[in-house]
Amino acid sequence: MSEAKERHYDAIVAPVITEKSTIAAENNQHVFRVSGEATKPQIKEAVEALFDVKVRSVNTLVTKGKNKRFRGRPYKRSDVKKAVVTLEDGHTIDVTTGL
């Protein structure tokens, strides 16, 4: 695998498949878990290269980890960075096939 393609897989961790992201997919918006260090241009480049589509915009958000308890012992979930990728009209991604 080429170094450029490996870098794309480092930027995009996994697609987010939830009820909310499925509804967003109807409006050409797809949600991905991304690396915490990934920037918007890197995410755009990775999605365009891996899925062969044209990206209109990328919005990112960081979901802060919650403090939880398991069997009485406290722990903290990890922070998760997500990217909402809006595609140009006429382009689609089938995230159920996997990366």
Results as ranks from 00 to 15, higher is better:
Asp79Arg: 00
Arg7Gln: 09
Lys76Met: 12
Phe51Leu: 09
Arg33Asp: 03
Leu50Gly: 10
Arg69Ser: 14
Arg69Trp: 05
Glu3Ala: 05
Glu45Cys: 00
Ser35Asp: 15
Thr60Pro: 01
Ser78Asn: 12
Glu26Thr: 05
Arg69Gly: 11
Thr92Met: 03
Ala4Asn: 00
Gly90Asn: 10
Val80Tyr: 08
Thr39Glu: 08
Pro15Tyr: 11
Val31Thr: 14
Arg71Leu: 15
Thr39Tyr: 06
Thr96Gln: 08
Asp52His: 07
Val62Glu: 04
Thr60His: 04
Asp52Glu: 14
Pro74Trp: 08
Val53Ala: 09
Lys5Gly: 00
Asp79Trp: 04
Glu19Ala: 13
Ile23Arg: 14
Pro15Cys: 07
Arg69Phe: 13
Val95Ile: 15
Ile17Ser: 02
Gly98Ser: 15
Ala38Glu: 01
Val95Thr: 14
Glu19Gln: 13
Asp79Thr: 02
Gly98Leu: 14
Ile93Arg: 03
Phe32Ala: 05
Lys82Gly: 08
Thr86Arg: 04
Lys40Val: 07
Val53Leu: 02
Lys40Glu: 11
Pro41Ile: 11
Ala14Lys: 10
Lys44Ala: 13
Gly65Arg: 05
Thr92Ile: 10
Lys82Val: 04
Pro41Val: 09
Ile43Asp: 01
Asn28Glu: 11
Thr22His: 07
Glu26Trp: 03
Arg77Asn: 13
Glu3Cys: 02
Val55Thr: 05
Ser35Phe: 07
Val55Ala: 07
Pro15Asp: 12
Lys82Tyr: 12
Asn59Ala: 09
His91Pro: 00
Met1Trp: 02
Gln42Ser: 03
Asn27His: 15
Glu48Gln: 12
Phe51Lys: 12
Val84Arg: 09
Leu61Asn: 10
Val34Gly: 02
Glu37Met: 06
Asp94Met: 14
Phe51Cys: 07
Leu87Tyr: 01
Val62Gly: 04
Leu87Phe: 08
Ser21Leu: 12
Thr22Ser: 14
Lys40Leu: 06
Val80Asp: 06
Ala25Trp: 08
Leu99Met: 15
Lys20Asp: 13
His8Leu: 04
Ala38Arg: 05
Asp94Asn: 15
Thr63Trp: 05
Ala49Gly: 05
Val47Phe: 02
Thr60Asn: 04
Ser35Pro: 00
Leu99Gln: 12
Val55Asp: 06
Asn67Ser: 09
Asp89Asn: 11
Val13Thr: 11
Lys82Asn: 07
Thr22Arg: 11
Val55Ile: 08
Glu45His: 00
Val95Tyr: 15
Ser21Cys: 06
Gly90Asp: 13
Thr18His: 07
Thr96Pro: 04
Tyr9Glu: 05
Leu61Phe: 05
Glu48Pro: 05
Val80Cys: 10
Glu6His: 07
Gly65Met: 02
Lys68Ile: 07
Ser78Ile: 03
His8Gly: 00
Asp10Met: 11
Asp89His: 06
Gln29Asp: 08
Leu99His: 08
Lys81Tyr: 04
Asp79Phe: 02
Val31Tyr: 10
Val95Ser: 06
Lys5Arg: 13
Ser2Phe: 01
Phe70Val: 09
Ile12Thr: 00
Lys54Trp: 02
Glu88Trp: 02
Arg77Met: 14
Asp89Tyr: 04
Ala38Phe: 10
Val34Met: 06
Ala14Pro: 03
Pro15Arg: 06
Ile93Phe: 13
Ser21Tyr: 11
Val95Phe: 14
Glu19Ile: 11
Val55Gln: 02
Arg71Lys: 15
Lys81Asn: 04
Thr18Arg: 03
Glu45Tyr: 01
Leu61Cys: 11
